[in-house]
Lab assay of single mutants.
Amino acid sequence: KRPMNAFMVWSRGQRRKMAQENPKMHNSEISKRLGAEWKLLSETEKRPFIDEAKRLRALHMKEHPDYK
């Protein structure tokens, strides 16, 4: 399984929150809205998620050196 990218790290928490606030909303609609919100974030707002994704990628490479 591939490590999560920055968007996936961010959206994991956001998706849960949005699903709780809008229980009838379909997952595909939640995904569209999350994608639009992510695009509006500044580089500074994205930075912690980018850093976490880098950390996860490095850990994955260490644990699975033969993974392509």
Rank of each mutant, 00 (worst) to 15 (best):
residue 1 K to C: 10
residue 1 K to E: 11
residue 1 K to R: 06
residue 1 K to N: 13
residue 2 R to S: 14
residue 2 R to P: 08
residue 2 R to D: 15
residue 2 R to K: 10
residue 2 R to T: 12
residue 2 R to V: 13
residue 3 P to N: 07
residue 3 P to C: 06
residue 3 P to M: 05
residue 3 P to F: 05
residue 3 P to K: 13
residue 3 P to D: 15
residue 4 M to V: 15
residue 5 N to M: 02
residue 5 N to V: 02
residue 5 N to I: 05
residue 5 N to H: 03
residue 6 A to C: 00
residue 6 A to L: 00
residue 6 A to P: 05
residue 6 A to V: 00
residue 6 A to T: 01
residue 6 A to D: 01
residue 6 A to G: 13
residue 7 F to H: 00
residue 7 F to R: 02
residue 7 F to Y: 09
residue 7 F to G: 00
residue 7 F to E: 07
residue 8 M to Q: 13
residue 8 M to W: 12
residue 8 M to R: 05
residue 8 M to P: 00
residue 8 M to L: 10
residue 8 M to K: 03
residue 8 M to N: 12
residue 9 V to A: 04
residue 9 V to F: 02
residue 9 V to P: 00
residue 9 V to Q: 03
residue 9 V to N: 04
residue 10 W to Y: 00
residue 11 S to A: 12
residue 11 S to G: 04
residue 11 S to V: 06
residue 11 S to T: 04
residue 12 R to T: 15
residue 12 R to Y: 09
residue 12 R to S: 15
residue 13 G to Q: 11
residue 13 G to R: 04
residue 13 G to S: 08
residue 13 G to F: 14
residue 13 G to T: 13
residue 13 G to D: 15
residue 13 G to Y: 09
residue 14 Q to G: 04
residue 14 Q to T: 06
residue 14 Q to V: 04
residue 14 Q to W: 00
residue 14 Q to F: 03
residue 15 R to F: 11
residue 15 R to W: 11
residue 15 R to M: 14
residue 15 R to G: 08
residue 16 R to T: 14
residue 16 R to S: 14
residue 16 R to Y: 08
residue 17 K to P: 04
residue 17 K to E: 07
residue 17 K to Q: 09
residue 18 M to W: 08
residue 18 M to A: 05
residue 18 M to Y: 12
residue 18 M to N: 00
residue 19 A to L: 11
residue 19 A to D: 06
residue 19 A to R: 07
residue 19 A to Y: 07
residue 19 A to T: 12
residue 20 Q to F: 07
residue 20 Q to D: 15
residue 21 E to Y: 00
residue 22 N to C: 05
residue 22 N to E: 06
residue 22 N to Y: 08
residue 23 P to A: 04
residue 23 P to L: 03
residue 23 P to G: 06
residue 23 P to S: 05
residue 24 K to N: 11
residue 24 K to H: 10
residue 25 M to P: 04
residue 26 H to S: 15
residue 26 H to L: 13
residue 26 H to W: 03
residue 26 H to G: 13
residue 26 H to E: 14
residue 26 H to R: 10
residue 26 H to P: 13
residue 26 H to A: 13
residue 27 N to R: 06
residue 27 N to H: 13
residue 27 N to Y: 09
residue 27 N to C: 08
residue 27 N to V: 07
residue 27 N to K: 09
residue 27 N to P: 12
residue 28 S to W: 07
residue 28 S to I: 05
residue 28 S to F: 05
residue 29 E to K: 01
residue 29 E to H: 00
residue 29 E to G: 03
residue 30 I to W: 01
residue 30 I to T: 05
residue 30 I to D: 02
residue 30 I to L: 07
residue 31 S to H: 06
residue 31 S to T: 15
residue 31 S to F: 11
residue 31 S to E: 15
residue 31 S to C: 07
residue 31 S to M: 15
residue 31 S to P: 01
residue 32 K to A: 13
residue 32 K to Q: 13
residue 32 K to I: 08
residue 32 K to W: 06
residue 34 L to D: 04
residue 34 L to A: 08
residue 34 L to M: 04
residue 35 G to F: 10
residue 35 G to A: 14
residue 35 G to C: 13
residue 35 G to Y: 15
residue 36 A to E: 15
residue 36 A to V: 07
residue 37 E to I: 05
residue 37 E to N: 06
residue 37 E to M: 13
residue 37 E to G: 06
residue 37 E to P: 00
residue 37 E to L: 07
residue 37 E to R: 05
residue 38 W to A: 02
residue 38 W to Y: 05
residue 38 W to R: 02
residue 38 W to D: 03
residue 38 W to Q: 05
residue 39 K to I: 06
residue 39 K to Y: 03
residue 39 K to P: 02
residue 39 K to C: 09
residue 39 K to F: 06
residue 39 K to N: 09
residue 39 K to H: 09
residue 39 K to A: 14
residue 39 K to M: 09
residue 39 K to D: 08
residue 40 L to S: 12
residue 40 L to N: 14
residue 40 L to R: 12
residue 41 L to K: 08
residue 41 L to H: 01
residue 41 L to A: 01
residue 41 L to S: 01
residue 42 S to Y: 00
residue 42 S to P: 10
residue 43 E to Y: 06
residue 43 E to T: 07
residue 43 E to R: 05
residue 43 E to S: 07
residue 44 T to R: 08
residue 44 T to S: 13
residue 44 T to L: 09
residue 44 T to H: 09
residue 44 T to A: 13
residue 44 T to Q: 09
residue 45 E to M: 05
residue 45 E to R: 01
residue 45 E to G: 02
residue 45 E to I: 05
residue 45 E to Y: 06
residue 45 E to D: 09
residue 45 E to C: 03
residue 45 E to K: 02
residue 46 K to Y: 01
residue 46 K to H: 00
residue 46 K to A: 01
residue 46 K to T: 02
residue 46 K to D: 00
residue 46 K to R: 09
residue 46 K to M: 00
residue 47 R to D: 04
residue 47 R to T: 08
residue 47 R to W: 02
residue 47 R to S: 08
residue 47 R to E: 12
residue 47 R to H: 04
residue 47 R to P: 02
residue 47 R to Y: 02
residue 47 R to V: 05
residue 48 P to R: 02
residue 48 P to T: 03
residue 48 P to W: 03
residue 48 P to S: 02
residue 49 F to M: 03
residue 49 F to P: 02
residue 49 F to E: 01
residue 50 I to D: 05
residue 50 I to E: 15
residue 50 I to S: 04
residue 50 I to Q: 10
residue 51 D to S: 11
residue 51 D to T: 14
residue 52 E to Q: 04
residue 52 E to S: 03
residue 52 E to F: 00
residue 52 E to T: 01
residue 52 E to V: 01
residue 53 A to N: 03
residue 53 A to T: 02
residue 53 A to G: 02
residue 53 A to W: 01
residue 53 A to P: 01
residue 54 K to Y: 05
residue 54 K to T: 08
residue 54 K to A: 14
residue 54 K to W: 04
residue 54 K to N: 14
residue 55 R to Y: 07
residue 55 R to H: 07
residue 55 R to G: 05
residue 55 R to Q: 07
residue 55 R to K: 11
residue 56 L to R: 05
residue 56 L to W: 04
residue 56 L to G: 06
residue 56 L to P: 03
residue 57 R to N: 15
residue 57 R to K: 12
residue 57 R to I: 06
residue 57 R to L: 09
residue 57 R to E: 12
residue 57 R to T: 12
residue 57 R to W: 08
residue 58 A to D: 05
residue 58 A to P: 08
residue 58 A to K: 14
residue 58 A to V: 12
residue 59 L to F: 11
residue 59 L to M: 05
residue 59 L to K: 07
residue 59 L to D: 14
residue 59 L to C: 12
residue 59 L to T: 12
residue 59 L to V: 12
residue 59 L to W: 10
residue 60 H to T: 14
residue 60 H to W: 11
residue 60 H to S: 14
residue 60 H to M: 14
residue 61 M to C: 12
residue 61 M to S: 14
residue 61 M to I: 12
residue 61 M to D: 13
residue 61 M to F: 08
residue 61 M to N: 10
residue 61 M to E: 14
residue 61 M to A: 14
residue 61 M to W: 09
residue 61 M to P: 13
residue 62 K to L: 11
residue 62 K to T: 13
residue 62 K to G: 12
residue 62 K to P: 14
residue 62 K to I: 12
residue 62 K to F: 07
residue 63 E to R: 08
residue 63 E to V: 11
residue 63 E to W: 04
residue 63 E to N: 14
residue 63 E to H: 10
residue 64 H to F: 09
residue 64 H to Q: 13
residue 65 P to L: 09
residue 65 P to T: 13
residue 65 P to G: 12
residue 65 P to F: 10
residue 65 P to H: 11
residue 65 P to M: 13
residue 66 D to G: 10
residue 66 D to F: 05
residue 66 D to R: 07
residue 66 D to I: 06
residue 67 Y to K: 15
residue 67 Y to W: 08
residue 67 Y to H: 13
residue 67 Y to T: 15
residue 67 Y to L: 12
residue 67 Y to A: 14
residue 67 Y to G: 15
residue 68 K to N: 15
